[in-house]
């Protein structure tokens, strides 16, 4: 019996963790390259839930039935729209503060975060929105009483999250842009001297991070079916935790941190008490960071001499 619950929670945790990971990637990339925490990132995720819903509604209105086509089209549109949001936010709120003291862009980020929330409330209302489930079906392992279930949506979430992560990893590790990105992260001044337009690199990092948040936004909306203007906050805190847990600045770390956070949260919820799952998750973070302050895969910060 317990073994089945354990396995079930493990499945749920990995799915949840994959979503944390998708958003954590945005935090970690921006931190890695600018040393700044982009607190507005989670609101991009929130907006993408609205964007996906609107796009889905329009597509269904146009008579598109196939779930796969619906998802891919929605993903495409939502990703490009959030990418645009990310680009504009960087241009307006962060770039002018590039040489300002570190606190300034942080305040700016919190401001943008509030603006985006209010924007969602003003244009879409404060009520919870939802979409009906359009991908059904569950695969069961085990008998009628003791079993582990994986819904088709969960499978889809895992596949899409995995593909996005693999694609992102490929871009960063094996393309000229990825190389420029890593060079900018390690020594921005030197990257400029070698002819890299680091402003452009930073813009693209925001674009990519935002697009990944859109993937998460659509997946969560499909999975839970409902959302409001406030979903960014909790998700942001969790994803940021995942990024820190994995070692902020590290891409693989963000993904790993997401999975660890998701799994430990689900296991605690399933085996002990679901009301205290967040308490457990964050206690875990605190304890972990006491022993490994730079996170799982992070490198200890070396002061430049």
């Amino acid at each position: 019996m317990t073994a089945y619950i354990l396995a079930q929670q493990l499945v749920n945790g990995v799915v949840l963790g994959a979503i944390y990971g998708l958003i954590a990637v945005g935090y970690t990339m921006v931190y890695g390259i600018m040393g700044m925490i982009n607190f507005a990132h989670s609101e991009i995720y929130m907006l993408s839930a609205y964007l996906s819903t609107i796009v889905l509604a329009v597509l269904v209105y146009w008579g598109i039935q196939s779930p796969l086509v619906l998802i891919l089209l929605t993903l495409g549109v939502a990703m490009s729209m959030t990418a645009l949001y990310g680009w504009v936010i960087e241009r307006l709120a962060y770039r002018p503060l590039r040489d300002a003291p570190r606190l300034a862009p942080l305040i700016s980020a919190i401001g943008i975060s509030l603006i985006l929330q209010s924007y969602a409330v003003l244009t879409q209302g404060a009520k919870t929105k939802g979409i009906p489930t359009f991908i059904e079906g569950v695969t069961r392992f085990g008998d009628a009483v003791n079993n582990v279930q994986i819904s088709n949506i969960q499978v889809l979430i895992l596949i899409i999250a995995l593909c996005s992560m693999v694609a992102l990893n490929f871009i960063i590790q094996h393309t000229a842009f990825g190389q420029a990105c890593r060079a900018t992260q390690q020594d921005r001044g030197m990257a400029e001297i070698l002819g890299i337009n680091t402003d452009k690199v930073i813009s693209l990092v925001f674009v990519i991070g935002s697009a990944m948040a859109a993937v998460a936004g659509l997946l969560v909306t499909m999975n839970y079916g409902s959302f409001d203007f406030n979903i960014g906050f909790v998700m942001g805190v969790k994803a940021f935790t995942a990024a820190v847990l994995g070692g902020i600045g590290s891409l693989t770390g963000a993904m790993l941190g997401g999975i660890i956070l998701g799994v430990s949260e689900s296991l605690f919820a399933g085996l002990v008490n679901s009301d205290y799952k967040d308490v457990f998750a964050f206690s875990l973070l605190v304890i972990f960071l006491i022993f490994r302050p730079s996170g799982l895969l992070g490198k200890p910060e070396v002061e430049k001499v």
């Binding site: 390690q186 002819g195 890299i196």
Partner: peptide, 28 residues
């Protein structure tokens, strides 16, 4: 000119303290 345009003109710098990218390979 912006800094990143200078390299394209045929001027290269070996900076103080070398400033290689430590986490990248020699090849990179």
């Amino acid at each position: 000119l912006p800094t990143h345009h200078i390299a394209g003109l045929g001027i290269a710098l070996v900076p103080e303290g070398r400033r290689i990218f430590p986490a990248m390979t020699v090849a990179e």
